[in-house]
């Protein structure tokens, strides 16, 4: 019997969303990132980023907070605990794939 390949989380397994998750994961718990900063760090368009963020929000991996700074609406994004755990599992699965690919030859 061979070991089954580890399952990869389909929500994270799209490069754009993986990069969103990695960026938000560098923040400490209790911190949120401004939407324009996230957009700039990822080099994505606002529309594209919004689509990916709603998929991540649906999976409860990120939390989106819409608020106001004076009269300007501002959006902040933070990673949830569930999101951090999912990214950790995903990274572990990728490493395991690498090990099986390199270790059983």
């Amino acid at each position: 019997m061979t070991d089954a390949a580890p399952e990869l989380d389909p929500v994270i397994h799209a490069q754009a969303r993986l990069r969103v998750m990695v960026t938000l994961n560098t923040l400490c718990e209790g911190d949120e990132m401004a939407f324009p900063s996230l957009k700039e760090l990822l080099g994505m368009t606002a529309g594209n980023l919004s689509v990916h963020l709603s998929k991540l929000e649906e999976a409860e991996y990120v939390r989106i907070v819409k608020t106001h700074k004076g009269r300007t609406p501002v959006t902040y994004v933070a990673m949830t605990r569930r999101g951090r755990a999912a990214l950790e599992d995903y990274t572990r699965a990728i490493r395991a794939l690498l090990d099986t690919a390199g270790g059983t030859a």
């Binding site: 799209a14 490069q15 993986l18 990695v22 960026t23 560098t26 760090l41 990822l42 490493r95 690498l98």
Partner: peptide, 22 residues
């Protein structure tokens, strides 16, 4: 999303690069 599936090596590289940029 219709993206090509990257290899595990590529994925780890993407993770490292994005972490460094941030």
């Amino acid at each position: 999303d219709g993206e090509r599936v990257p290899s595990p090596e590529e994925t780890l590289r993407v993770i490292e690069q994005q972490r460094a940029v941030t």
